[in-house]
Simulated assay, not measured.
Amino acid sequence: MTLDTVKKLFVHHPLFRLLSPLFSGTLVYLLILLINNNIGQLQETFLGQELYVCIGLAYLIQEYARLSLLWFERWSQPRNFVLKLVLHLIGSVVIGIGLVSAAIYLYFTYVLGYTPNHRELFIFNSIFSLITLIYLVLYLSYQFLYKVNTELITGEILAKEEIEADFRRFKKGINPELLFESLESLLVLMKKDTNRAELLCDHFSSVYRYMLARKKRELVPFLEELNVLNELLQLLAYLPYRKITLGRVGVTDTWIIPGSLLTVVERIIRSTIVSPEAHLTFDILEDSDRILIQYVPEEVLRGGFHTERLSDIAGSYQFYTDKPVQVVVKEPLKIVEIPKLKLDENSHY
C-alpha cells in the first residue's frame, strides 16, 4: 500500500484527530477511576484536572500512533511484511510507554508534588498501550481490506478489458464495412449477372470463413494467408475501389498473425483514391526479419495511410516480438513492415 493510500485512512482526518482523543481520554479517566474504586468521585469532580490530563495524554498517544503509521510505510527494510509489522508493533508500544511514563512523571512531580509509583505507571501505560495497539489494528484491517478491494477491482478491470478486447476481435473478424459493401454489390449483381453474383459469393465466403475461423489460431503460415489475400483482392474487384494487382511476391516460408496481411492490404486500398481507370499494384517482399508490403501511394486527401492506423496489429505483434509494425516512406514507395515470426515446435497454432 502506498503512502498516499495510508494518508487516506480515517485516523488522519482532522475531525477524527480533534474529537477522538476527547472520547478516548474520557474513557481512560473512567477506567482509572474504576480500577482505583473511586467511581464515586464522578459526582464531585468529573471535570477535574485528572480528566484533562487523560485527554492530553490521549492526544499525545494518538498523534504519535498516527505518525508511526506514516513512518512505518516509509520503511523499506525488512521486506518481510510480518517481521516488519512485529517490529513496528514492538517499537510503537515501547516508545508509547516512554512518552506516557515521561508525561506522567512530569505531571506528578511538578503539579502534584510527588513521584508516581509503579502501580500508577503500570495502569496508565497499559491503557494507552492498548490505544496504540488499536491504531495498529485499524491500520492492519484497512490494509487487508484495501488489498482485497484492489484485487476485486483489478479483476473487474481485467474482465472489462477482456470483454472489450473480445468485442474488438469480434468486430474485426466480422469487418462490418466489408460485409455490407459486399452484400450491396451482391444485390446489384443478382439483377444483372447471376454468374458474377455466384463468383462474388464464393470469394466472399472464402474470405469470411477464414476471418471467422482465425480466432482459434495464434499464427498461420504466410502462404495460407496469401491464398486468402487473393480471394480478398477478387472480392474487392466487385466493390467501388481502385482495381488492385498483386505484383511480385518474394516471401519464403514464415508465419504471421492471422488476418494481419488482409488488414494491411484492405487499409491500403481504402486510403487510396478511387479511380476506375488506374490500378494499384503492390509487391510483397522480405528481408532477413521482415515482410515488406510496398506500393506507390496515391492517397485520399483525408485519412492517409500511416503507422497509427496499424496500432491494433502492432499490439498483437507485441506478444511475439519486439520488432515494430510500421509504415516507412522511401520515395516513391510507401512500405509496410511486418516482423517475421517463428513457430515454436512445442506450440499449438
Rank of each mutant, 00 (worst) to 15 (best):
S205H: 05
E177W: 01
A314C: 03
T321S: 14
I293H: 05
N175D: 15
P176Q: 08
E231A: 11
A165C: 00
T132I: 15
N346Y: 11
P221M: 02
K191F: 05
V86W: 10
D312M: 07
L3W: 03
T321L: 06
Y107I: 06
N227Y: 12
V251I: 09
H13M: 04
L99A: 04
E345S: 13
Q143D: 08
Q143K: 11
L133H: 04
L280A: 04
F10G: 02
S347W: 11
Y52C: 01
K192A: 09
S185Q: 12
E156R: 11
V137Q: 07
N117G: 15
L261H: 04
Y295N: 08
L343Q: 13
Y146A: 14
R290M: 12
N38A: 15
Y320M: 03
N80W: 10
K192F: 06
G315W: 01
I313A: 02
V249P: 03
H13C: 03
I284A: 03
L343G: 00
E44S: 14
L70E: 15
K7G: 01
F222D: 08
R79D: 13
L112N: 11
V148P: 00
L189N: 05
W75K: 12
Q143A: 14
I32K: 09
L99G: 07
N175C: 03
V82F: 14
R217T: 11
V228W: 02
A102P: 00
V94W: 09
P240S: 09
T109H: 13
I268D: 01
I313N: 03
V207I: 08
R267M: 08
Q43V: 06
V94Y: 06
L212A: 12
S206K: 13
I127C: 02
V94E: 03
V329P: 00
I157Q: 10
I174A: 13
P221N: 08
A102N: 03
L89R: 01
I338M: 10
L42P: 02
V327P: 06
T5L: 12
H279M: 11
T252R: 12
L280R: 05
I338L: 15
S126H: 02
L183F: 11
R248L: 10
